[in-house]
Design a protein around this nucleic acid. Structure first.
Lengths: 165, 165
DNA sequence: AGCTCCTTGTTCGATGTCGAACTATGTAGT
DNA sequence: ACTACATAGTTCGACATCGAACAAGGAGCT
């Protein structure tokens, strides 16, 4: 009817954008007391990969600009979920550490998110979820390289997937 | 090593969120003159599925709240990319139409996006892209149903995928 | 008709994110 | 040592999005 069919990659990215949007909204509705997904993402990152990291490094790993991370860390610190200290090795740097409250909050968030997302696997088998991951990681890699072509970053998001057995 | 392994669905959604973020940033850097992805999404929707739709209907289809769509339509109208007229059948409603400039802008945007995303398929074969789509559509469906469980919507995002052969 | 409930589009205030720009510090090259 | 240049963290202004709340109109029911 129309000659405007989108390329396959468009359709795929559109689908991904919608899924991200639905998942974000659904998850943010159940997170404890106004905790944003971006806040949780940082807590989760620090729990999984270890704390004592610099703000800039966290920002690169979770794919936000540094100003956004400054904001996020300030909010987390105001809630007592993280604390930060100057880096003794680097006068510019700042290291971010989890507090016990931060670890507890992350655990609580994981629990409610798991509950909220429980109905989802009914649309997808565990095997299908696993099968999706490989190609999606390569897609992410391709996007990372395409960005590097126009910019000049190299540490990208690699450490996000590091500790997978 | 740590006892904090995330459920598979978490890992999947995290990957999806990062891909969405990378793709959005990459695309918005090449869109003509400050055109936002949300603006393009509306233009693309109207070209593909037909114009003369109401603001609320477009908002549901592209998964944003009505205030956001009011803002988007106002920006598009200020640029002369769409025009709107009151719905003669419904005194509350407002119908949004594409202008020629809007159609042209959408075509131009598709072209530069295709160029910007050209390196991406090198990480993924066309067949893999196609294979991804089925499971992802079911994932979207599952999320839609999970949302319906706590809320009360039913038209969801179905028409977005309607014209697929 | 009248009443109730839903839908539409909008305005408002709050928040998160971005890019640009700035200061301070580290790093490399001469 | 000095002079670039890169990086860390922050502040600033712009902007999109959200949820809540509103006024206006439609739909259904008695």
């Amino acid at each position: 009817m129309n000659g405007t069919a989108d390329p396959a990659i468009f359709v795929l990215l559109n689908e991904i954008a919608i899924i991200e949007h639905l998942a974000r909204n659904q998850v943010e509705r159940v997170l404890p007391d106004g905790l944003r997904l971006s806040h949780f993402t940082v807590l989760n990152h620090l729990v999984r990969l270890g704390d004592g990291r610099s703000l800039a490094r966290i920002a690169r790993a979770v794919q936000v600009e540094r100003p956004a991370m400054t904001n996020t860390i300030q909010k987390l610190e105001a809630r007592g979920l993280v604390r930060s200290a100057p880096n003794p090795r680097d006068g510019r740097g700042k290291l971010v550490f989890l507090t016990e409250a931060g670890r507890a909050m992350r655990g609580q968030a994981v629990a409610v998110m798991a509950t909220a997302l429980a109905p989802v696997p009914h649309g997808l088998t565990a095997e299908e979820i696993a099968d999706l991951l490989g190609p999606l990681r390569r897609l992410r890699g391709a996007l990372d390289r395409a960005r590097d072509a126009t910019e000049h970053a190299q540490d990208a998001t690699a450490d996000e997937t590091a500790p997978q057995p």
